[in-house]
């Protein structure tokens, strides 16, 4: 369900390769599970900068959690960022220099 408009159904999110197999001529098609694992791992590297975490929920949704225990159920990456901003009342800006420096430092480790 789309948490913004509250309606069921819809095409898979544009970031899901399994929802758009025709667009990805994979040399080696990753499984949906592996794709979700990798997405969760990478998102957590970013969310760590803000003190949040994400976990996969039954292979169908994700649970976003703050350090104080507030949670939100999100379906996809678009919903993730909107909910993260709502929960924390902070801007999640990928162009923020502090975030870029933090991610670059993590990548260099």
């Amino acid at each position: 369900m789309c948490s913004l408009c509250g309606v069921l159904g819809g095409r898979g999110h544009w970031t899901d390769t399994s929802s758009h197999p025709e667009a990805f001529t994979h040399v080696e098609q990753p499984t949906r599970r592996r794709e979700r694992q990798e997405r969760t791992r990478l998102v957590n590297t970013v969310l760590d900068h803000y003190g949040l975490s994400l976990s996969d929920w039954a292979g169908s949704s994700y649970v976003l959690k703050t350090k104080t225990g507030q949670t939100a159920l999100v379906e996809n990456l678009t919903e993730l960022w909107a909910n993260a901003e709502q929960l924390t009342k902070h801007d999640f800006d990928p162009l923020d220099e502090a975030l870029i420096d933090s991610l670059a430092a993590k990548a260099a480790r």
């Binding site: 990478l42 970013v46 678009t78 990928p94």
Partner: peptide, 16 residues
């Protein structure tokens, strides 16, 4: 990396 790209673009479009 497609996963990283999707994370980045969704975050960019959410804010900007």
């Amino acid at each position: 990396d497609w996963t990283a790209f999707g994370i980045w673009l969704t975050m960019l479009l959410n804010r900007h």
